[in-house]
Design a protein around this nucleic acid. Structure first.
Lengths: 113, 113
DNA sequence: CCTTCAATTCACCATTTGATGAAGTGTAGG
DNA sequence: CCTACACTTCATCAAATGGTGAATTGAAGG
């Protein structure tokens, strides 16, 4: 039974008919970005490829903490890693990710402090 | 002390020098988007203005659940509300929000299933 | 092989989160 | 004013989350 305020549907943006699995995946991505610690890692990696120790030093955190964050970011395919000798170098998975992060930061800046 | 893998900084994108408070705010926004339930509400509202009851029916959830989600989304300034008689109509705060959601969905679709 | 450095995994903890039902606002109509 | 409807707030609780130190894996170099 429809409530008396119901409106007839007229889809607008490219957001109509979003598959549940796609929705879950998108939420997973946003969730991964939704922690200041992980976001800082991504901001760093948007600027340059870095190894775990470097990130830990830059953010003044324990290496194990950074490793955990990277694990989650990687499980959402937001970062990639490449081994070089003893080091594992991480970088943003693709330009799309930096874009997403950048958009979020922009929006954060635009809405009144 | 620098690790032997250290690289000289050469900022690239518009993401260098991100204020801590901005970072926290951006993370807050992403966190709000990072739940399938809330994301579904936003996807609905990206298409049209709706009252709480309508949203609850559309998503087959309890009204109190939807109300809680809307409260969080509003606290992050992702949605606006407007009263009309007994009804409270909610809509996306601005086009930027739909854009952000849309980008996330796109990214979710692009990365292999 | 043995040691060292880099990084991950594991187990544990406190904290946060999200749904839920009961109770409380607030608006309109009789 | 009193009732009905629309919605929010509150308190509760199980589940998920994030950081931490100890133990583990993995790659050089002697």
């Amino acid at each position: 039974m429809k409530p008396d305020c119901s409106n007839d549907d007229h889809s607008v943006s490219g957001l109509s008919a979003v598959d549940d699995s796609v929705c879950d995946r998108a939420a997973g991505i946003f969730r991964a970005l939704g922690d200041p610690g992980r976001l800082k890692v991504l901001i760093l990696l948007s600027q340059q490829e870095m190894c775990v120790t470097e990130i830990a030093i830059a953010l003044e955190e324990q290496m194990t903490t950074i490793s955990q964050r990277l694990k989650l970011l990687k499980s959402e395919r937001l970062v990639r890693s490449r081994r070089d000798g003893k080091h594992l170098f991480y970088s943003v998975a693709d330009q799309h990710v930096s874009q997403l992060v950048s958009n979020g930061i922009d929006h954060a800046r635009e809405t009144d402090p």
